[in-house]
Amino acid sequence: MNPTPLYSYASDPAWADLLPLPQDDGQYPLAQIAYTEEYTEAMSYLRAIMAKNEHSPRVLQVTAHIIEMNPAHYTIWVYRAKTLFALSATGEVQLGRELEFLNDLALRHQKNYQIWNHRQTVVEAIAAAAAPAEQEQLVREEKEFMNRMFEQDGKNYHVWSYRQWLVRRFEAWDGELSFVSALLERDVRNNSAWNHRFFVVFGGGGMDARQQGEGEVVEEVVEREIAFIEDAVFIAPQNASAWNYLRGVLKKVHRPLSSVESMCLGYAPLDNPDKITSSHALDLLADIYAEKREEHGKAVKALELLAAKFDPIRANYWNYRVGLVKASV
């Protein structure tokens, strides 16, 4: 039971010239929804004004109203953006205000993706008209707002995706490494943060890449990353994120997996299974030993320990890997 809406388009003189366009659901509609009267009325006026392709201030009113009830309405966002840009060109609207509107929405609709897509369009338009100092300010404020989002959910896919776009678009790499290190300090299992670290270190254009020109990563950076991983694994040996990152780094810089054998043995001494603290170390050892025929026995042993004791949920997978090792002879 929804209370009668306080506002109605039908009784607002500003909308009196428009004939609302009701929805025709037809016969045998699929997935019919129990709309509220408020939504039904607003949508009828939206359709009417969209059919006229009007770009006036009242478009901002009805689109904001509907977005509040249904932020996943996709065409409405593009219509709103077009209207905003038209009104901003004539000075009737300030685009900065749109970001405030979006901040409030994004905090309340964490899972929505259209909000971030729209934000990108708006920020792009603001930046196009901004002086360098204003751009820097804009980027700083965007990062600050994302931090607020991450406080609520440090793994929000849309926000991370947006952050990568922002960093790349504005060459805003400064501070990213310390930002992501701080997040990982708070939660070493935050895989999104690990992923962002990979982007910052190897994504091109970052401090690390710039130091040594195209394509290559300086030794110092590799050592720093490996030391960082070693610390993270020490805190949480069973944290898959850190081990996956390790594999990613080694592959990226063309180092053999065997270069971390001793580190793996620290968490998975094959000759002393009682002391094994990480299934991921065992998995890595299996890959290291599978590369050399004379060490296949050790690879099989690691995989059998995984299947039987350290990761039995994936027993089928580990046994399949045993088969691959044996078949590779």
Binding site: I33, M69, P71
Partner: peptide, 26 residues
């Protein structure tokens, strides 16, 4: 029930994806 009666108001946020919801029901 999904096919023959109205979905609850909470589904308003999926209003623009009704063909998708319809597919799932079928």
């Amino acid at each position: 029930r999904c096919l023959r009666t109205c979905l609850p108001t909470d589904y308003t946020t999926t209003d623009l994806n009704r063909l998708t919801l319809g597919f799932f029901c079928i």
